[in-house]
């Protein structure tokens, strides 16, 4: 029973990592670099919700489903715009430069956002308690106990992952994203506006990060400008474990990491080594499957 409970909790956490990991992996797919600022977009999503909560309360009443949806949608939209702007301002001018240049820029953008937000005239460095978006009830299913919020997060995330699969595999824009991932020049020869596809990718990834940031904050004691670092790192590992550039891989990696982290956290004496365990898994997977669990080994694109 205990292990089943842990497993479900792990899936709830892992599905949040999966949402974040999708953003890393999609951007890697189209641009072949790791967008380190992704974890900060997650944080900005959480702060957006923080500031939107009173507005939602005035509009829809305290802790209503409509209010929560309002917060999620607006925060996702805000972060989508932020993600597109980050790409446009910081990465696009460097498009034809070596990947290392872009990578270092991404680290720079990340630090810039983190330290700007820590300034007392922005958010301040202190931890703020995250508003209760929905009243949480205890739900018992067959002897297992869940918070209703965890269940909602799990269901919403599953729906988002399914939606992402549909978007990427079944829509024209998704096909264009896959085409650009494979060969940007060939995609341009088909009439694809590559810049627009890249903007779109950043918008989707950032919106998912915002939602993940809100879900993550609902389980965390509070939010602060560095809150994205931990889940961002885990989600990055998840994306690599699953096979960077591979969307189902990112989802699988996220779930795997969430479950392992939760189960390890429940074992006395092991819980302090959770990050160590995450990295050990990363190293093990990469030793035996260098391209990740679902990644196909491909020759480096030139």
């Amino acid at each position: 029973m205990e292990i089943l409970q842990q497993l479900t909790n792990g899936l709830a956490l892992g599905s949040i990592y999966a949402l974040i990991a999708l953003g890393y992996t999609m951007v890697y797919g189209v641009l072949r670099f790791i967008n380190f600022a992704h974890s900060d977009v997650l944080m900005l999503g959480a702060y957006s919700a923080f500031f939107l909560a009173p507005v939602a309360e005035r509009l829809f009443g305290p802790q209503t489903i409509a209010g929560a949806l309002f917060i999620i949608v607006i925060a996702a939209a805000i972060c989508a715009v932020i993600g597109v702007l980050i790409e446009f301002l910081a990465y696009r001018p460097l498009r034809s430069r070596p990947k290392l240049t872009v990578l270092i820029t991404a680290i720079g953008v990340s630090l810039f956002i983190e330290f700007t937000c820590q300034h007392k005239s922005v958010f301040g460095a202190d931890t703020k308690s995250f508003p209760k978006l929905l009243a949480s009830r205890d739900v018992a299913i067959g002897g297992l106990h869940f918070s209703s919020n965890d269940l909602i997060v799990l269901v919403l995330t599953a729906a988002l992952l399914a939606g992402m699969w549909f978007l990427v595999q079944r829509t024209k824009m998704g096909m264009a994203i896959r085409a650009v991932s494979f060969n940007e020049k060939a995609a341009a020869l088909m009439g694809v506006n590559v810049n627009r596809v890249i903007s779109y990718t950043f918008a989707i990834g950032s919106a998912l990060a915002a939602i993940a940031g809100i879900f993550y904050s609902m389980r965390a004691p509070g939010i602060d400008p560095l809150m994205g670092v931990q889940p961002g790192l885990r989600a990055f590992i998840a994306a690599v474990v699953g096979g960077i550039g591979n969307l189902p891989g990112a989802a699988l990696g996220g779930l795997l990491l969430g479950v392992i982290e939760t189960v390890a956290g429940g074992i006395p004496g092991v819980s302090n080594y959770r990050d160590g365990i995450a990295f050990a898994i990363l190293i093990l997977v990469l030793l035996f499957r260098p391209a990740g669990l679902l990644g196909k080994s491909m020759v480096e694109k030139v």
Partner: peptide, 14 residues
């Protein structure tokens, strides 16, 4: 430069 990750039909649709 066919899209090796896409099906033949998807390539044509591209």
């Amino acid at each position: 430069m066919v899209f090796a990750n896409l099906s033949v039909l998807e390539n044509l649709r591209m």
